[in-house]
Amino acid sequence: MTEPLLAVRGVETYYGNIIALKGVDMDVHEGEIVTLIGANGAGKSTLMMTIFGSPRARTGRITYAGVDITKMPTHEIARLRIAQSPEGRRIFPRMTVMENLQMGAAIDDFAHVDEDLDKVFALFPRLKERIAQRGGTLSGGEQQMLAIARALMSRPKMLLLDEPSLGLAPLVVKGIFDAIRELNRTEGLTVFLVEQNAFHALKLAHRGYVMVNGVVTMSGTGRELLASPEVRAAYLEGGHH
């Protein structure tokens, strides 16, 4: 087995005195789509943000491409070509779609903006139509597309997505998941996908992890988890959310 691209080992994260991650282990290999599913409040977003260094892991180790990033400042982690579409999307509301996308290329001093714009517009043609519109006035689905497209503008090796399906119509979700699959297949982009929408996420992903109360309780291929009775009971058959 090759060295994983992202390795999370025994990570504990606290908010003040409250523990949110209780020793998490997780691997993402190059070229994989890995999903993390779990109920609301399980700690999925916390894990994703811990990978990005805010909040910081109190114990444990996170390595990316062999580099220890556990204590690295967030902006330096981003410079290792990890990009994210965070919880709440966090696009720049007063900036236009164009400007938002350009900001994605900030780490390369905006060097390859033009080329990459064509690429993300091919992936999300809707954004091209909205190029001069302010980010804050886009629909939810468009904002999600913008968040992903902005992340892609940094030419990432690995893309972290926090609940891209949240609040979107099924058809829009499908479009976004298709785009993720496409990127993975054609460009070999490694994807770490945090989702509550377990069914679609597990169908898309090569492998998945299940998180309950800050602990990873199960892992396996997407197919295995979809078939697992526990997963079905908790996350697929109208289980708790």
């Binding site: 902006h75 990009a83 696009i91 509301p93 900001m103 900030a106 780490i107």
Partner: peptide
Amino acid sequence: LPIGRAWEALREDEIACRSLGINT
């Protein structure tokens, strides 16, 4: 210029700035 853009992005969303690799 990049620095001016970074200022405006900072005004809009500091956390997003950091995760885009901007040294806030």
